[in-house]
Design a protein around this nucleic acid. Sequence first.
DNA 1: TTGTAGGCGTTATCAG
DNA 2: CTGATAACGCCTACAA
Lengths: 341, 341
Amino acid sequence: MKRVTIKDIARQLGVNPSTVSRALNDNPDIGLALRTEIKQLADRLHYRPNQMAVHLRQRSSRLIGLITPEVTMFFYPSVIKGIQHVLHERGYNLMMLPSNESPEREIENIRICAENGVAGILLSVSRDSRVPDQFSLLSDMPAPVVQLDKTLAGLPFDAVLLEDFDSAYSAVSHLVKTGCRNIAGIFGNPAMSITQLRLKGYRKALFDHGLRCPTEFECFADDARQAEICARKLLSEPAPPDGVFAMTDEVLIGALPAIASLVGNIPGDCAVICISDGFLPYCLQPQVTFLLHDGFEVGKLAAEKLLGLIESGEYKAPGYSGEKLMLKARLVELATTRSLE
Amino acid sequence: MKRVTIKDIARQLGVNPSTVSRALNDNPDIGLALRTEIKQLADRLHYRPNQMAVHLRQRSSRLIGLITPEVTMFFYPSVIKGIQHVLHERGYNLMMLPSNESPEREIENIRICAENGVAGILLSVSRDSRVPDQFSLLSDMPAPVVQLDKTLAGLPFDAVLLEDFDSAYSAVSHLVKTGCRNIAGIFGNPAMSITQLRLKGYRKALFDHGLRCPTEFECFADDARQAEICARKLLSEPAPPDGVFAMTDEVLIGALPAIASLVGNIPGDCAVICISDGFLPYCLQPQVTFLLHDGFEVGKLAAEKLLGLIESGEYKAPGYSGEKLMLKARLVELATTRSLE
DNA sequence: TTGTAGGCGTTATCAG
DNA sequence: CTGATAACGCCTACAA
């Protein structure tokens, strides 16, 4: 039960393989009559092109490499959905290459992309990745790169990311507006640029509103578990916060239950706000107001950008250095308002 | 800046490309001296084999196709981690092929696997998939298939799945043990086999303990939102349940906050138990006892099984029909016990 | 131990 | 309009 190839069709019709190839690719050079005859036979024989051969020939597969630091249940599932939504309808496939937060693995993943002739790379960098050595490989790749979410300044690629500074700034400002005066922040790993940006937004918001920003109120957590510990520590301070900014869903899911169990009334005693993908805040109790960072949108835009580059070849222009596309977050108010107090 | 190929190396060393190929593949026919010389040059030139060519030649890529109904934040992220853990260390890569719960898309995905010469397929079927038409394609594929999680009886493939019936049975029995007498169940879409199995386990447990099992207490929810509605409906019955079995994390996350807001005391007034991947129950408040369905383990075992089949060729034997590997769930008690009352 | 030649399945180029 | 030919990069009988 060998697979049927172009040659088989050619033989049966007594024509040349190249003619079959052209006909199947709708080349108008081939007479309509012959073209349809070939197509019909191809159909009857259940002919499917061997992509491995096509790829070798074209020197590029229709694969897109997605390099991410990890596959958490937060954010990435929706990013992936957004990516797939675009890739599928344009006939590309997705190869997942998690780096497990390891720069070495990241390099290996880039290598895998090169060896497999991916048509393009979607790159979300690990915590400890550094420009430029690590990404020198990328520059002489015949495929475009689009960074998404966790990006690195200084790489000459397009990027799609969320306004981290602004979102944090807005979130904290919203807490201030609803009456909070002692606002703590729980952040992610400080080596990540998104952490730094959100931290800056947090600080600036406090500063602009004339509020103090004691360092004990700035906590850093690598995961939900640590976020819980941070929350407990914050609330056991002699002067505990009356508002908490959670940098991510992951932080929120760790911190909120702890806060809920320690203060009588949220947001009465302590308000909580976070930056979220828009799913968890609806699930948790009490519901929490958040700034929506839409992963689906990020994935979709990054994929569209990437396919655009692939098809235009624009990225090959000497000196092409990409542009950053910054998405704004939207405030979603779920919490019962606190401003009455 | 063309990519360096085997020919380039051969030319520089004045040997034949085939010699280089053999040397790089550690063929002992090639003299050790020459072999190392070739390898060194390959290194210096940063030679990387062109996998597209290798694949065409071998008639198989080192890609594994993962076909899943969707990419939710529940369960799949850990399954994927388990899969990647195995694939990566054995030099395979993962192509993600979500079917969006569409049987047509599922067929298309199988086709994509065939065209791309994947070395194997990991298959989790959609709700409405039916044997056998849909999977006839699979039978004459030169690659093995392993089903995981959402499986379909009647397909002649290996499968790795969790003991759904047993887990539901144990979960409900545990509720009985802690004193519940009116136990409701919130399930997923009834068309899924895991729903049917868990439903049967639920019913059997009630039956075996001599408890009634009114149909109003069996609810079906397609997502978290619907699960919330189910929970509200259940608790507003004239005789509300004193125990609720949530079939999945997704059900739990929808139902628990609703239950928490409607009854004064969990588990005092109404106990809750669920089947979970082992992350959410720790996060939600109140914490809930669960049966651990370990996605990582499922992914890992399925991937190992698949690579085993690929490398042994066993699956090609006429009449090979696969075997089901059933994983048992483990009870994890987080809830404050209710048995005192 | 190494070289030669052919082919994996497709498509691009050049004739006719 | 269609056919012949070569090439994409690699591997593997077979020959030497």
